[in-house]
Design a protein around this nucleic acid. Structure first.
Lengths: 125, 125
DNA sequence: ACGTTGCTTAGACAAATGTCAACCTAGGGG
DNA sequence: CCCCTAGGTTGACATTTGTCTAAGCAACGT
């Protein structure tokens, strides 16, 4: 458990990314590293899962609380969670009978930074 | 041209979205509306296209400047641009022989807002 | 030891996606 | 007119994705 999705080498800790999309062209390498994270958020179910996990009290949620929130089979939810995990967006940990997921704020922050846009302000803020 | 992707009804102008993922659970409807935008950014080529468009001088780029930047056929680039358009991320306009794309900052802003995370600060902001 | 509950893995399958070659449309110049 | 260039559309194809059922592994209760 707590797989870091070895082959992805997202290296989110470093300068893989960051200057906003709108400020500087994203080089191919960075795009290849970051796209999977967006792709993972590109499914309605996973986007909801992500928000349920990220907004959870105590910073974590039991899978047993996630599964019943959707009209989908357990394996399907598990599959989506794996996708989020492999995209580096969440981490999982087994404690006793249950498995808990928690968000990785660093990654979210970096994605948000990438999408950042100058404030609408036409004049000087 | 300048298609607004009619059937999508993203309604990005209103409260379709916005409170950060980490603050509040994204309801299914909002997730369904927002996921396509993330999905559109979930391909390396499109992520690069998006950044080339969004960071362009003058706020717009000619397709003729985008296509040669990739090792892909014209139709393929055209297809990716259409995907970005239908996701509401960009707009296109024909002027004479050439077609220009420009970013829709509102949407980027909303996506960024959704991913926003509290500053790392463990203590009082 | 056995059965139960929670979650993941494996396999299968229809649907969606990324890519290309071929064709088509728009606009500009001879 | 005809042709040339810039892009988009169509149709085909292999690959990936979302979903399920069936089977597996892990922890707990009895």
């Amino acid at each position: 458990m707590s797989k870091q999705a070895a082959p992805l080498s997202l290296d989110f800790t470093a300068a893989t990314c960051c200057p906003p999309l709108t400020q500087q062209r994203v080089p191919g390498e960075a795009a290849a590293a970051l796209a999977p994270a967006f792709k993972a958020l590109g499914d309605p179910v996973r986007l909801q899962l992500m928000s349920m996990i990220a907004s959870a009290e105590g910073g974590e949620v039991c899978v047993c609380d996630l599964t019943p929130a959707f009209d989908l089979s357990g394996p399907t939810i598990s599959h989506h969670l794996r996708t989020l995990r492999e995209a580096g967006l969440v981490d999982s940990e087994r404690r006793g009978t249950w498995v808990y997921y928690r968000a990785r704020p660093q990654v979210l922050r970096q994605l948000a930074a990438l999408l950042a846009v100058e404030p609408t302000a036409p004049a000087g803020r």
